[in-house]
């Protein structure tokens, strides 16, 4: 055998060979972070997958009748019930398998997608229920930090200070005045075997987490930052870059909680930790924060990030759930 053929395959070569589950021809915006997330995550297994998806950008843009961009079985039910729907699908699989109507050795990975609105807000009850019941599935929240499909409204994932159409900046407002809900921790508190936070900015980290989430038995949760050029107001070629910047500023720490043990999967050394202004500057939704009257808002954001980051560093390696 020639030497070149002996060369060990890179991870990316293996990824490139994996089946494409979301086909071209979908109608998500140019530069959309959600489709990058879906393409990368679904490379996390070679087993057959069945997908449910909450109403939202990913769903509407991928299934405009009579077209579907899904190469795998896919069900959309409604906005708030992606997790409940996959619960029923997974229960059906167990039932039919138990009865011998589906071969005993048949493997299917069940994946539920939802945006941040469909997950943090309207779908959190259905998600909590499904996690608590212990269905064998992976829930993926592609987080673009607002209701983007309906035209950029604030959600409980929208960061402090961000402009949205329902948290506009104005003479009496600096944008959203609440910090984001910590959804990964909420999910991990269900004592599920695997929960993780990732970003499309670091695909190696995301794919690794997807592989782990898809491999565990029982519920797993992935929160994936999926920047939105349209809603965040940045040029569409920068989607991945902004996903990286979120991590490098410690706005979006990459971590996982495996069997209750917290682990930072990307440590940012102090000297490499970028100021939050770099991230805020990159997006039009934070433009107003750079007006003089909002200086304290940026300080408050930086302070929160620093506190959280210190806490994460301290907790690293601890069993927290």
């Amino acid at each position: 055998m020639a030497k070149t053929e002996m060369k060990k395959k890179r991870k990316i070569d293996i990824m490139a060979e994996m089946p494409e589950r979301l086909s071209s021809g979908h109608r998500l915006c140019a530069g959309c972070g959600a489709s990058i997330a879906a393409r990368q995550i679904l490379r996390g297994t070679t087993d057959p997958v069945v997908i449910s998806c909450a109403t939202g950008c990913l769903e509407v843009a991928s299934t405009i009748y009579p077209y579907t961009a899904w190469e795998v079985p896919f069900i959309h039910n409604a906005f708030e019930n992606s997790a409940a729907t996959i619960s029923g699908v997974e229960a059906a699989f167990r039932s039919l398998k138990k009865q011998g109507k589906i071969p005993k050795n048949k493997k299917i990975k069940f994946v539920a997608f939802g945006g941040d609105g469909g997950t943090y807000d309207i779908g959190i009850q259905s998600l909590s229920g499904a996690l608590e019941r212990g269905h064998d599935f992976v829930y993926v929240c592609y987080d673009n930090e607002a209701y983007m499909n309906t035209g950029i409204q604030r959600s409980s994932a929208t960061p402090f200070g961000a402009f949205t159409n329902t948290s506009p900046a104005g003479s009496c407002s600096f944008g959203k005045s609440q910090f984001r809900k910590d959804l990964t921790m909420i999910c991990a508190a269900h004592h599920i075997p695997y929960a993780a936070q990732a970003s499309i900015g670091y695909w190696q980290d995301l794919v690794k987490k997807a592989e782990k989430a898809l491999a565990v038995e029982g519920p797993a949760f992935l929160l994936v930052l999926a920047p939105c050029p349209r809603g965040w107001r940045f040029p569409m070629e920068k989607t991945v870059e902004i996903g990286k910047l979120a991590v490098d500023t410690c706005f979006w720490p990459l971590y996982e909680i495996e069997n209750g043990v917290f682990k930072l999967t990307k440590k940012i050394p102090d000297k490499k930790k970028k100021p939050i202004t770099e991230w805020l500057k990159s997006q039009g939704r934070f433009k107003h924060l750079f007006e003089e009257c909002n200086e304290n808002v940026i300080e408050e954001i930086q302070q929160k990030i620093d506190e959280d980051w210190q806490r994460y560093l301290k907790t690293n390696g601890d069993k927290i759930f």
Partner: peptide, 27 residues
């Protein structure tokens, strides 16, 4: 990183773009 699956691979190597689908995002 392509959101549209528009990178064409030949024998596992980058060989160009599928302009039928590429939306020109520039990522």
């Amino acid at each position: 990183v392509c959101p549209d699956g528009s990178i064409v691979l030949k024998d596992g190597k980058m060989s160009g773009f599928n302009y039928d689908y590429c939306k020109g995002c520039g990522i």
